[in-house]
């Protein structure tokens, strides 16, 4: 008991400063934050609780790599109270941060292997952290492929960065669900892209993040490419309040997404009926 009391954690936000805002799409912007007193010290795939005093808190993935010094990025979609209010902020504003929380992508398991990153919609936000990490340590990874799906060309996230990623010997494939005539790329669901790439089941790991509906289709396709469940990582979203395994909101059966996730190795959750 005294141990628990001694190392207990409070729900106090730490102060960060909004350094820059970059609009990305009609609904999403990229916010660059600085913490005055410390580095965030996160792993790719982890998240923070972001808050404005009197308005509320929301869990947001960290969209930049810990290898980039000075601050961190959050890619935030307008979805309600807190996220709308953050979109109204100007550089110089103060934002509360708790975290980082959760388990991110196990980088060690990706090193020395082929990496296939599959991002649907806003799922590219947390994966950008991993992508930046890979571009900063490119030689530690074998072939790297990024498959990106979005509803329309206008809702694609970070299109201006794909060139830089490609220049680091990374294959980037993009598809959209619907497009106008001006779009020259792929049209169709993201699973189509999986058929088009090389997958060596022994030496490949795949990391997937997207809307809930995407996972089942992507997993079926990856299974058809003979990728084993223990070579697949999924980043899952659930409602979250505490980030500390207490409030119960994020539970998938007996697991807490905020502690044991949000990134899970697929074989560890495949048997859970509430996971996908």
């Amino acid at each position: 008991m005294s141990d628990a009391a001694g190392s207990a954690v409070d729900y106090l936000p730490e102060l960060s400063t909004l350094a820059a805002v970059r609009p990305l799409t009609a609904a999403e912007s990229l916010f660059h934050l600085d913490m005055p007193h410390r580095a965030l010290g996160h792993h790719p795939g982890q998240f923070v609780q972001v808050s404005l005093p009197g308005i509320g808190e929301a869990p947001i993935s960290i969209a930049s790599s810990p290898t980039r010094p000075a601050g961190f990025d959050l890619c935030i979609r307008r979805a309600g109270n807190v996220t709308e209010a953050i979109h109204r902020l100007k550089p110089g504003a103060k934002i509360g941060i708790r975290g980082p929380f959760g388990r991110g992508v196990p980088i060690d398991d990706c090193m020395g292997r082929n990496v296939v990153i599959i991002a649907g919609g806003l799922g590219l936000a947390p994966l950008r952290s991993l992508i930046q990490y890979i571009t900063d340590h490119r030689s530690r990874f074998k072939a790297v492929t990024i498959l990106i799906g979005a509803r329309t060309p206008e809702t694609l996230l970070f299109p201006d960065e794909y060139g830089a990623w490609r220049s680091r010997d990374i294959k980037v494939e993009v598809t959209v669900d619907v497009s106008k005539e001006t779009w020259l790329g792929h049209v169709g669901v993201i699973t189509n892209l999986i058929s088009r790439i090389d997958v060596d089941p022994d030496t490949t790991v795949s990391i997937v993040c997207g809307p809930p509906i995407m996972y089942r289709f992507v997993l079926r396709k990856l299974a058809r490419r003979n990728l084993q469940n223990d070579h697949i990582y999924l980043s899952l979203e659930r409602r979250m309040k505490c980030g500390m395994g207490k409030c119960g909101h994020c539970q998938i059966n007996g697991l807490y997404v905020c502690l044991e996730g949000p990134v899970f190795r697929y074989d560890r959750i495949a048997h859970l009926p509430e996971a996908l």
């Binding site: 141990d3 628990a4 009391a5 207990a8 954690v9 409070d10 500390m244 395994g245 207490k246």
Partner: peptide, 11 residues
């Protein structure tokens, strides 16, 4: 409430 990270207000 004691599982790390323990809940400070409770303790």
């Amino acid at each position: 409430m004691g599982e790390p990270p323990a809940d400070a207000p409770y303790w």
